[in-house]
């Protein structure tokens, strides 16, 4: 199973509580640009929430130092002690969920901790689980799994 932050755009009112909670928690700074979750204002008072879906794992494949891995919970984690800050992961992320902030040494992303979900006044965020499958893994993981099954 993959643990992830489920986002529900239709409930979001753009109060930015989530970004404040997240950036304070991880950067001790209330700054939407330093939040793992992002809120984008659309037309007609609608909002779009972006956080890592923990599923595509392109960043895992791209990382040259294997600093980005998949935890047992299915969450994609970044080990800062291995990260060389190249930002290749930011470039390959199809949704813009892998984040960077000018001058910070490492990129950052949502690790489905749930802090924002707890504080969201409109219940637009929740920690959920979804099916894991080889198809949703980084190809190297998928191959390793198939090989293991084959043995």
């Amino acid at each position: 199973m993959i643990k992830y932050l489920r986002t529900m755009d239709e409930k979001c009112v753009g109060c930015m509580t989530c970004t404040a909670v997240c950036s304070r928690l991880y950067f001790k700074d209330e700054n939407p640009a330093k939040s793992d979750i992002q809120v984008f204002e659309l037309a007609l008072g609608k909002f779009h929430l972006v956080a890592c879906d923990q599923e595509c794992r392109k960043c895992v494949s791209e990382c040259p130092t294997q600093a980005i891995t998949v935890a047992k919970t299915g969450v994609v984690m970044l080990d800062k002690s291995l990260c060389v800050g190249c930002l290749a992961c930011v470039a390959v992320c199809p949704t813009g969920a892998m984040r960077w902030y000018p001058g910070l040494k490492h990129p950052f992303k949502c690790i489905a901790c749930g802090a924002c979900a707890k504080r969201c006044p409109k219940d637009a965020l929740e920690i959920a689980e979804k099916e894991d499958s080889p198809a949703s893994r980084a190809w190297s993981d998928a191959i390793a799994l198939v090989r293991k099954e084959g043995q």
């Binding site: 800050g85 930002l87 290749a88 930011v90 470039a91 390959v92 960077w100 000018p102 001058g103």
Partner: peptide
């Protein structure tokens, strides 16, 4: 200027991808 190095690098990363 580390932020500038990041910005220029990321621009090319994206272009390559």
């Amino acid at each position: 200027d580390p932020a500038a190095v990041q910005r220029i690098g990321l621009k090319l990363h994206r272009e390559i991808v």
